[in-house]
Design a protein around this nucleic acid. Sequence first.
DNA 1: GTGTTGCATGGAT
DNA 2: AATCCATGCAACA
Length: 719
Amino acid sequence: MASTSSGGPKVCFNSTCNQLLVVPRHGWLRRTGDFADLCDRCCSAFEDGKFCDTFHLNASGWRCCESCGKQIHCGCIVSFHMFILLDAGGIECLKCAKTEYILVCTVAYELYLLILTPNPTWPCASHSLRGPAERISDFSSKRPRIYYWIKSCTMAASTHTRDDSSERFVNGSWRVSAQEKIGDKALTSGIQYDEQHNLFKDVSYQSHFHTNATPLSSLPATFAPHDKKMETGNVSGIHVKRLRAPPSVGKLSSNNNGAGPSLENQAHNTKAQGETRSCHQILQRYWSQFTGHERQQLSGGSHAKITPLFEKVLTASDAGKIGRLVLPKKYAEAYLPPISQPEGCPLVVQDLNGKDWVLQYRFWPNNNSKMYVLEGITPFLQSMQLRAGDTVTFSRLEPEGKLVMGFRKVSPAFPYDKGNETTDMRIPAHEESLKDDIALKSRNIDGTWSEVDKNSIRAKRKKGGKMCSNSKNLKLNEEQILQFSVTLEQIQGLLRPPLTNSPTIVVIEGVEFEDFQEAPIIGSPTALLTDNVDGSLCSTMAEPTPDHLERMLPMINHENQKSLKTIEGLDALADLAVHDGIHNGTKHKSNHSTPTPITHHDPTPREQQVGKSMHKRNPFILADAMRSFQMLYGNENQKEGPDLPDLSREKPSDSTFKNQNIDLNIQPEREEELYPVSDSMGIMRLVEESTQRYMKQQQQQQKLSFNGITDGAHKNHDL
DNA sequence: GTGTTGCATGGAT
DNA sequence: AATCCATGCAACA
């Protein structure tokens, strides 16, 4: 590369050019902070994004975009901004990356987007969020384009208009602000680049159009998400929130503003990903999982845009008679109107049918904090027939900013139940993986990465229990689910028919299940024939190994096994099968001489909430296997509320085989009536009930046998 | 007695 | 240790 000698005539920085510069033009920003001075021709090539194509064609470092295949030069500072490095390796051109980025940011609507740049003069500190001060200073003087999304908010009985958006140069830095009128209040939102501190600030404040309104001091300072990872402070009554300083320029818009190629630079990568992570950091705990299909439904098929905000799995309390839905504080503060008084404000929420519901949004003081609740939720829940364990989703209809409440039922028969209007709510796999990736880390204000949002993990653990502690494993993409549905069908391969019985074939959702009067037994089919002649006992197996499961899944094709193995829950299944099932199979055998009562375990509310994950050591292998599958197959939010058939109530507990008594009050047939088998849960239920019948029959037989009655089995055939 | 409201408590992270 | 939040519960209507 050419350089300039101090005092001497400048030559083009392009070493392959070296033309004397009469009027140097600024090219890329060098690491020194100076610009590379280019001649007209080279600068034009640079600005057109063709510099590498022109001058570096024979250089090394060309790679193909993983998405579109376009060749991108990755070997020089000039093209440094023209691609992003993919987490999984490889690169992606900005065009492709931008698409993804826009998508992500659409989800994370609330976040301020600071994608700056007219000119790719920022060599981008991809390694550092806070670049050297000289870069920043240069950058700040270049009137960065600030891509700014104003937040909107739905408030009951309020007009909501977006009044103004402007850019101003204030005190040496560019400030973008927008004002929206919400009722009699004006929310001025702004972002300002703080040159001195090398930061972007969120400058938002409320004022009033009318003097008779609430005093300013009583109003929350900002609508911005109250992310504690952001440093905040108050300056002259203006709420200042420190955002991460973008290290670079990079305009989201594809417009070429004439100042250079409209190329989002590498900073885009780091910035976008950083902000993306930040987005997700804000959202992930109650991340709404909408597909385009659902969004379309929510928006009534129109072109209105739906912005998923967050969601909440209904707890027993939420779904109880009180009609109070506890809202996650973080998201209540981020996405709902700010309330400073415990009384809160009425909130108009639209349901999926377009019907408006007026709820009271308020909070309670709690441990120096607040608990946000939506009161009066009962009519909505009843109308939608929602219960504990179901999920209520909160989203926003754009552009009017109306809050929309959707829902997802705990047993929507996903993915088959086409009738359920909120099925198919999974987000596409690529979003999912992105989310998952994002969920693992978040970026701190100082640009470092740290463990993210433990609440999210906690929430996911709650949802998935031990089976799905990893978010990546928690949510299955559709392909996995389909694969798993096949696996579910194939589970019959695990159910060993008692030799003395012939099955009743039950077809559910196109899947044939063999309903034995005697319970099927999980075990290796190859082992079936070698032991257990009475057909009622589990086979005893040698010391099980992890490979055991594989042998137990002879009918599952390799692909599905692979797929399953990616699911952490399978480990749990294997664990159950190997450590519990087989164990308990043996135990089961011995139980013939050790009668135990069927105890009805009434789960604590916490157990209900956590689902079945608490039942780690259940002797009834099939039930647990079913539960495992159920958890994997079903919604990750799947939980059982008090109104749902709690399998844990119905299944024998650990003590089942210790003191066998028989609870003859159980009426599985009736339960079937109550809970029609129309979904995946139903399939589980059917299988489980089948096994329950078997259990009861066995126990009855044992009891009767103990009493010297020999025809017990016949008498209890219908149990 | 019943339902509602507002706060306190404690488990989970 | 701090925080969140699900739920309990006393006070009140």
